[in-house]
Amino acid sequence: MTALTVVRAGALTTVQDLGRPGHAHLGVPRSGALDQPAHRLANRLVGNPAAFATLETTVNGCAVRVDAAVTAAVTGAPCPVRVDGRPVAWGAPVRVPAGAVLDVGSARAGLRCHVAFGGGVAVPRVLGSRSRDLLSGLGPEPLADGMSLPLGAPCGPPLAADTVPWPGPPTAGLVLPVVLGPRDDWFVPEARRALAGGDFRVSAASNRIGLRTEGPSLERAREGELPSEGMVLGAVQVPPDGRPVVFLADHPTTGGYPVVGVVPEPSLAAAAQAVPGTPLRFVPVRA
């Protein structure tokens, strides 16, 4: 079986696929690729179905050696890509010869790259998924130098993609639409105005669980605790400090802090690529 050996693990590189939805009632987060369009495109470029596992890198990429020739593709955050030191294309299928090192460099913009290999990363599935869930620790450990990862058998020809629609990372600013509710009535009217008009920034404390914010603090209209209730992807939860947190793939399945609104799923890929400090605005939209 073909395998990868990790030469440089990078800041945080995890195996991700489309996650493990359907187990939230057991307390299992959905997990899965944070930048889903990038994950899907990377797979498409190497001839994989969308459900095959890719590597999700953070900030400074990673490097892997392949023990047999394989087609790879890097998408998501733009970055330099090298095979044995020689520059190759980003966002396109790249042939990596047996024994060569594919090096995914530091992101020039955005945060996370998805790296697909023909056949996909073929670690064992846990509850139907190969995704690493950083909240509950399910799935394969994050990459570490020297680690070996199996690849599956390539199942289709790499797809030519001459033009790929891609919005790019939100470098100038991140604008997140938000559908208010279910607990917007837990906040004073000024808080709702602050959410709609306030200048927020992406906090450095953001991770795969949630995008944390700096900026306006949303004041509650009522005291007390909300009994634990189910949480959805994109929920904008407001902890006692008043600073909204946008739930990403590894979010907890239940929570007791009120959710002021929900960011629709198609906007979350941009949230996953926003570097700390990026200006952030929320725009209320109709359900």
Partner: peptide
């Protein structure tokens, strides 16, 4: 429906 998530006083239907 993708998820049926009961909690203390609620049931969430997602998807």
């Amino acid at each position: 429906v993708a998820e049926i998530v009961p909690a203390a006083r609620t049931v969430l239907l997602d998807g």
